[in-house]
Computed example of a mutant assay.
Amino acid sequence: MTTLNITIDADASDAPYEQVRTQISEQARSGALPVGYRLPTVRGLAERLGLAANTVAKAYRALEADGVIETRGRNGTFVAASGDAAQREAAAAAAVYAARVRRLGLSREAAVGVVGDAVRAAYEGGGGGEG
């Protein structure tokens, strides 16, 4: 049986909504939460985690904007078939970046180095973006 596993770390530097967003996103993208998996209601998950409903709602809105989940009105909120959507969005962002740095006159090596630095910073908690 598939279950959503979320742990909120009160001492973490990330806000609780970001912890919820990140954990659901990672579980959906890894396949731990399959496409079509029905997520708990905002209120239900908030109660389970000891969070305000607005906190969970903010996470769900961000996940929906990222294409990770989809809300089907009264039917609930489900994991979307979004792996490809995330790849397409990343490729589009990369194409815009590549065109811009070429216009700025950066070498290919310098452009790749800047991306590497930004990705490291984002994944190591040093900022540099949303994710």
Results as ranks from 00 to 15, higher is better:
67 G>A: 00
67 G>P: 07
68 V>W: 01
68 V>D: 06
69 I>E: 03
69 I>R: 01
69 I>D: 00
69 I>F: 00
72 R>C: 13
72 R>K: 12
72 R>G: 04
73 G>E: 04
74 R>C: 04
74 R>Q: 13
74 R>F: 10
75 N>L: 11
76 G>S: 04
77 T>H: 02
77 T>D: 00
78 F>V: 01
78 F>L: 08
78 F>S: 05
80 A>V: 01
82 S>C: 09
82 S>R: 10
83 G>E: 08
83 G>Q: 14
84 D>F: 08
85 A>N: 08
85 A>F: 06
88 R>F: 13
88 R>N: 14
89 E>G: 13
89 E>W: 05
90 A>E: 09
90 A>T: 07
91 A>Q: 15
91 A>F: 08
91 A>D: 15
92 A>D: 15
92 A>W: 09
92 A>N: 14
92 A>G: 08
92 A>L: 14
92 A>R: 13
94 A>L: 14
94 A>G: 08
95 A>P: 04
95 A>N: 01
96 V>Y: 14
96 V>P: 10
96 V>G: 10
97 Y>T: 00
99 A>F: 13
100 R>P: 00
100 R>G: 02
100 R>L: 00
102 R>G: 03
104 L>Y: 12
104 L>E: 15
104 L>V: 07
106 L>A: 01
106 L>P: 05
107 S>A: 14
107 S>K: 14
107 S>Q: 12
108 R>L: 15
109 E>Q: 07
110 A>Y: 01
110 A>F: 02
111 A>C: 02
112 V>F: 03
112 V>D: 05
112 V>K: 03
113 G>T: 12
115 V>I: 12
115 V>A: 06
116 G>P: 06
117 D>K: 10
118 A>V: 01
